[in-house]
Design a protein around this nucleic acid. Structure first.
Lengths: 188, 188
DNA sequence: CTCATTTTTTAACATTTGTAAAAAGCTTCC
DNA sequence: GGAAGCTTTTTACAAATGTTAAAAAATGAG
């Protein structure tokens, strides 16, 4: 539980009693590789924290899937449209490894936000952090080549390339697997 | 002030007293076209609401600028890295038209978040909404062609194309102006 | 209105990326 | 060990986008 508490604290430091309110609502679960945490079209009513494992979020296209997010140790996992708007998510999220997660029911979390100002601010910071991370990724993709984006991913998250198959990473970078393969070949 | 209050309320409904705390801190300003609201490298200590006008956020590259965000009537404007982390922003934000804005000092806003649970939740919702909007844009850019992105922008925000020069829009879509020009030529 | 400036379009060519299909490399499981 | 099924790389060709430069169109100041 330490990784979880450290992470919670790094987002927004909480007084002991508020921290307890939050962690009381969470419980540890072990789930196997390939387990679908959220299914597109359904309303995901749970938020997860990854203690050990990897998750990916993807859209189902006609004949292909688009992977646009990965979650690693220390990340929170939620279906944005469910978490934020209470509506069905457009994405599915699955585990890519046998994983150890903490889960909390979304309605419990929303209730805590309404009742406790520290937790409300913690939830605010959580969303703000996700926003910053996404903006950085988005801007990089706008004006950098696929090759540059790949190199940066290599240096910022080398673990990703070790643990995730390249087809998913290609999609995450916004290119085809063939293109990623070419980029890798040029780097040798 | 009605547009502002409606917008605030649509993000997260506030009781009268909390609403008053927020709007008390805001004041109306008129600023001219080309005014720089935030300068890259500096810490932006103000949040704006656009009652009338347009803003754009951009990065300064070696020999070009990358525009990655537009704000229109009803949008809040802030430098993410300043607002979220209190650090210097990497982007500059300028007005593209003579504009009417409401401004609130960032430290005032942060203080309100810490003191009032309704406002803390309002700030949470504000960030969550920005997050949703950005995710939609990011995913679209990942797996749609420039042409598709342009068509969608045309139908979702026709005003943008009327009021903003095409070089900025090209950059916002992640393509060169030449490419955007070609796309437009094919559509005739 | 006219000249100067800026913005947008067009053209020609280079580069990158996509597509489809096949080959090569890995896993898995019997 | 070997067959079957994935994943990754390679190849050849097609399509999309970038680059540079020039022409055309629109805008703005005097």
């Amino acid at each position: 539980m330490n990784a979880l508490i450290d992470k919670i604290d790094s987002i927004y430091p909480l007084p002991k009693d508020s921290l307890r309110l939050l962690t009381e609502g969470m419980c540890k679960v072990e789930l196997p590789k390939n387990k679908i945490l959220f299914e597109a079209g359904q309303t995901g009513r749970t938020v997860y924290f990854i203690e050990r494992g990897i998750a990916r979020a993807y859209l189902d296209g006609k004949d292909n899937q688009i992977t646009f997010w990965f979650g690693l140790e220390g990340d929170f996992v939620f279906s944005y449209n469910s978490y934020i708007n209470g509506l069905p998510g457009y994405e599915s999220i699955e585990l890519l490894e046998n994983s150890v997660l903490y889960e909390i029911k979304d309605d419990k979390l929303q209730q805590l936000f309404k009742e406790n100002i520290d937790l409300a601010n913690w939830g605010r910071k959580l969303a703000e952090r996700e926003l910053m991370k996404l903006e950085e990724r988005h801007i990089a993709r706008l004006f950098k080549s696929a090759s540059e984006c790949y190199r940066e991913l290599l240096s910022s998250s080398p673990a990703l390339i070790q643990r995730i198959q390249l087809g998913y990473i290609a999609s995450y970078l916004g290119v085809t697997q063939v293109t990623l393969s070419r980029i890798r070949a040029e780097m040798k």
